[in-house]
Design a protein around this nucleic acid. Structure first.
Length: 288
DNA sequence: CCTCAGGTAAGAG
DNA sequence: CTCTTACCTGAG
């Protein structure tokens, strides 16, 4: 059946560690390891499997709705704008970023559905990747579509509105339950909210998102970076905090000062730099 | 048994 | 605007 495999791109500048970190590193919780150098996951209503072989990335649709190569390329940010973004980052003059870019060659930002990113990052606070995955799966299983046995798709906020706080807490959400319920209500009352947010420039979009319960500065930046193609967004989580403090010598700096530094130093594609620094910092013990 | 986590919100200074 | 603390739950 290997004839089903299709090659994704001729010159996609990936590396094994780059694709692996892109899919499993924590910007999406939809992907799982399959065989060695293979990963499965849902993109909307399509169950897709990727394979890394001899320096090339291949894909196959396992089940669910048809998906085009163009849609996959967009999801994986395989168009030339990635190269442009990378070239605009100061990795030549910044040795910290340089090491990260070199180590995680081809690491990208996945372009995910904004609605789904909103949900998973509301649920992400103070939780590890496996915990977030599990929690998402519980919610998806309750309201989502079973695309393939064991694979449930993101149900959409209209259906999430049917989840009451008590029920959400019973799933193990803890204090995140009231965030989810509150956000579902807000979106129900303002159906075009996310579309509007997407059309505003970064800073305005960010402050709009922060009106949602459970969405603070970090989650808002994740939503904009992973779900709205706003590359200026620079989510500062504990890993980035560590990176800035230890690699960039910014201990004692205020969060607002770090944001300003990121904006000036990394520029309009700061979010891509963030992803490299994040991966480097998080894998620091494994790298040496 | 105790601490802390990939964060947010609320209250105080 | 900055700083502190509580908030659920589960892992270490």
């Amino acid at each position: 059946m290997s004839s089903r495999w299709q090659k994704i791109g001729a010159h996609n500048s990936f590396s094994l560690i780059g694709i692996e970190e892109t899919l499993l590193g924590g910007q999406s919780f939809a992907w799982s390891p399959y065989d060695p150098n293979q990963w499965v996951g849902l993109i909307r209503q399509s169950l897709v499997r990727f394979k890394w072989l001899e320096g090339q990335l291949f894909w196959v649709l396992e089940s669910g709705e048809k998906i085009t190569k163009d849609e996959l390329c967009h999801y994986l940010w395989l168009d030339d704008s990635y190269i442009t973004a990378l070239n605009n980052l100061p990795w030549r003059s910044d040795p910290v970023l340089g090491r990260a870019v070199n180590k995680f060659s081809g690491l990208r930002i996945l372009r995910q559905p904004m609605e789904e990113v909103l949900l998973v990052f509301i649920l992400s606070s103070a939780k590890s990747i496996p915990q977030i995955k599990l929690l998402c799966q519980k919610v998806y299983k309750l309201f989502g579509n079973e695309v393939s046995p064991g694979f449930y798709s993101f149900p959409g906020w209209a259906k999430l509105k049917n989840l009451h706080e008590t029920e959400a807490r019973n799933l193990g959400m803890g204090y995140r339950a009231k965030y989810l319920v509150g956000t579902a209500q807000y979106l129900s009352a303002n159906p075009d909210f996310l579309t509007e947010v997407q059309n505003f420039p970064y800073l305005k979009a960010r402050s709009m998102l922060m009106k949602l319960p459970g969405v603070g500065p970090k989650v808002a930046d994740c939503i904009l970076l992973f779900g709205a193609e706003k590359n200026e967004a620079f989510p500062i989580d504990t890993w980035i905090l560590q990176s800035l403090e230890k690699q960039y010598g910014m201990s004692g700096w205020k969060l607002s000062q770090m944001e300003e530094f990121a904006r000036i130093h990394f520029g309009e594609h700061a979010g891509l730099a963030q992803q490299f620094l994040f991966s480097y910092q998080r894998n620091l013990t494994k790298l040496n």
